[in-house]
Amino acid sequence: MRRTLRALPTLLRVGLAEAVAYRAEMLVWLLATNMPLVMLALWSAVAREAPVGRFGQKDFVAYYLAALVVRLLTGAWVVWELTFEIRQGTLAYRLLRPFHPLVAYAAENVAAMPLRLALSLPVALVGLWLTSAEKLTHDPLRLLLFPVAVLGAWLITFLAMALVGTLAFRADSATSLFEIWMGLYALLSGYLVPLELFPPWVSALARWLPFRSMLGFPVELVTGMLTRRQALVEVAIQWGWIAGLLLAVRSAWRAGLRRFAAFGG
């Protein structure tokens, strides 16, 4: 644990340097996260004639800009790195280091955040400020909970990816499984459509799945769609998922590692 803590600043510095080196690639990733803007355009066209549920045009603007920010803040890519390194055998190098490979992945991931944010956050914030600032919550408790919710959302994203990635220890098709996960995420997290607007049984289903905690919950929190009570309950659910995933990743990692044989190298 102490060793990991001591290595962390260096890991973060390396991660940041990597992010700077591949900045063009990152810009492409950022541009590829355009779905909230497309859905925003679509729902604005829908809400132009009459509001949908309790969503007017401005509510949609606030919702999707917040969704964009949360999505960019919670980006992770460990599943691709992990499956690639397991197949290539290069994971062996990471195993030689005196700290857990997943910590290294997480540090690389977090270290890229500042640059991603510097490129994207100003645009979204100015957009929010100009169009629908009044739709954001002003309640200090909910504003305080927002970073917690975003951190939790990132943790769930990262851990779920790590869990699917460890499947590469035993199967080839880990990434196609992840595509299914992403498909479910797109609809059940509130990324494409705010969960409220679904038929009640879908919203109810989404409440029992982790996807809502990954995006819908932080967004609804910051746009003031949740009461304080609901917000606290959701935080509890979210961190419950994190605890469960953490345990699952731990045992899956241990079981998978036993089967790991670095080919070539």
């Binding site: 990733w29 590829a32 779905m35």
Partner: peptide, 21 residues
Amino acid sequence: NLSYLFASIYDAARWPVDVFR
């Protein structure tokens, strides 16, 4: 990842173009 960007843009084609302004 340009192919990924391409796919993400193509996704917008599922809606009639008139909804965009």
